[in-house]
C-alpha cells in the first residue's frame, strides 16, 4: 500500500482554541499582565504539543489489510488490519481507520486505542461494496486527534489492489418466494448426500457447519469441511440469459445476476452439482473452485451487444433453471424453473 504525506486539519474545537489563544495573547500584550502571558504560554504549548504528538503518533506506522477470499456486494466485509508500530519507544494512541470509496468517507470507522512500540495489533474494520464487479480496494485514512483533539492529522493509505466483488446473494426465503411450489417440490426429495468421506476442503460461504472437520480446523486455524462421496447427486444447469444492451434495464439485470448467484450458492447445500451457462455459453471452471469461477463470471457479466438466440442448452433432461431479465415469452418453456423479467420485478 502506498503511504501519502501527513495532512493536517484543524478541528472545530481547535479553531475555537486558537482564537481564544490569540485573544489571550493580545490581551497580555495590551495589558502587560504577565499572568496572561503565562496562560497564553500554556495554550501555545498545548497547540505545539498537539502538532508534535500527532505527528509522532502516525510516524513509522504500517498498515496491512487482509480481505476475505470472497466478497459479495451489499454484504459487510470484515477487513483485518495488521497495524504495526515500528517506533522504538513511543506508542501510538487514538487512531481511527476510515475506509474511503469513490472519494467519499465511509461511516464505518475503526478506532484503535493504542499500539505499543514494536508491537502489532489486529484491528477489524467493515466495508460494504454496493455493487458487483472488478473493484479497487478502498483506500484508508488513518487519522488521529491525539492528544487534545485540536488538530486532526491524517495519512492516506492508498491501494492499487483489485478484487472481484461477487453479486449480492439473496436469502433462501427470497429464492423460495420466487417459485415456492416448484422449488419446494423439486428440492424436498433431493436433500442429503452420502456418508462416505471423500476429502477435506476449505470452508466456503454456504457450507453447513454440521460437516466441519474440527481436528483439521484446530490444526490449521481455519474452518475445514468434510466432503462426502456423491451418492445420488443431481446435476442442475443454470441458464442465464441477459437482455441485449439496447433493451437492458440495469436494475433487472442486477436482480437476474443476483438470483443466479444465489442459486449457485444455495443449491449445493441441498446436494446439487451445478453447471452454469451464460448467454448460451458454458462457463469454464479453470483451476479454481467451480463456485468462485461461476461467481467471478457473474460478477463481471455485462449485457451482450446483440440479441441472442435463446434455446435449451442441454438435451440430457437435466434440470434447468433459467434466469433472465427478458420477458417470459422470450424464454424456453418447461420442464425448467424459469425466473423471468416478470418474476424479477416482484423481488424487492
Amino acid at each position: 500500500m502506498k503511504r501519502g504525506n501527513f495532512r493536517i486539519k484543524i478541528t472545530r474545537t481547535g479553531y475555537f482554541f486558537i482564537a481564544l489563544c490569540l485573544g489571550v495573547g493580545i490581551a497580555g500584550l495590551n495589558t502587560g499582565n504577565n499572568l496572561l502571558y503565562l496562560v497564553f504560554g500554556s495554550m501555545l504549548s498545548f497547540i505545539i504539543l498537539s502538532g508534535l504528538l500527532s505527528n509522532n503518533t502516525l510516524t513509522k506506522l504500517t498498515i496491512i489489510p487482509f480481505f476475505p477470499k470472497r466478497v459479495f456486494a451489499k454484504e459487510p466485509v470484515s477487513i483485518h488490519f495488521d497495524l504495526k508500530n515500528q517506533k522504538k519507544f513511543f506508542p501510538s494512541f487514538a487512531l481511527t481507520l476510515i475506509p474511503i470509496s469513490n472519494g467519499m468517507l465511509d461511516t464505518e470507522k475503526t478506532f484503535v486505542l493504542k499500539v505499543l512500540p514494536q508491537k502489532t495489533i489486529l484491528a477489524i474494520g467493515h466495508f460494504c461494496f454496493p455493487t458487483r464487479g472488478l473493484k479497487k480496494l478502498p483506500s484508508y485514512r488513518i487519522q488521529t486527534t491525539y492528544p487534545f483533539g485540536l488538530i486532526r492529522k491524517y495519512l492516506m493509505v492508498d491501494t492499487t489492489e483489485e478484487i472481484i466483488v461477487y453479486p449480492a446473494i439473496l436469502s433462501t426465503e427470497s429464492i423460495f418466494a420466487l417459485n415456492y411450489q416448484y422449488l419446494g417440490e423439486y428440492l424436498s426429495g433431493q436433500k442429503g448426500g452420502s456418508l462416505n468421506p471423500y476429502g477435506i476442503r476449505d470452508f466456503v460461504f454456504g457450507d453447513s457447519f454440521r460437516f466441519v472437520h474440527w481436528k483439521t480446523t484446530a490444526k490449521q486455524g481455519k474452518f475445514k469441511i468434510k466432503e462426502f462421496e456423491h451418492e445420488k447427486r443431481m446435476r442442475v444447469t443454470i441458464d442465464v440469459w441477459l437482455a441485449p444492451q439496447k433493451i437492458s434495464d440495469p436494475k433487472l439485470l442486477e436482480k437476474a445476476i443476483s438470483v443466479a448467484a444465489s442459486l449457485l450458492v444455495h443449491l449445493p447445500t441441498y446436494g446439487f452439482e451445478i453447471d452454469l451457462n451464460l448467454n448460451g455459453k458454458p462457463v469454464d471452471v479453470s483451476g479454481r473452485s467451480y463456485l468462485d469461477s461461476y461467481l467471478s463470471v457473474l460478477a463481471l457479466a455485462n449485457p451482450p451487444e446483440h440479441h441472442q438466440t435463446i434455446a435449451r442448452t442441454t438435451d440430457d433432461h437435466r434440470s434447468i433453471f433459467v434466469v433472465s431479465d427478458l420477458p417470459r415469452t422470450a424464454l424456453p418453456q418447461a420442464p425448467s424453473l424459469v425466473i423471468s423479467k416478470e418474476t424479477l420485478v416482484s423481488i424487492q
Partner: peptide, 27 residues
C-alpha cells in the same frame, strides 16, 4: 509526561516571548 512537557513549554514561551510596552489598559 505530557503534563510536564506542557509546563516546560509554557515556561520557555513565557520567558522568551517578547514584552512590548504597549499596555493601553492596565489591570
Amino acid at each position: 509526561l505530557l503534563s510536564i512537557l506542557v509546563i516546560v513549554f509554557t515556561m520557555i514561551i513565557f520567558f522568551s516571548f517578547p514584552r512590548l510596552s504597549m499596555g493601553q489598559f492596565l489591570r
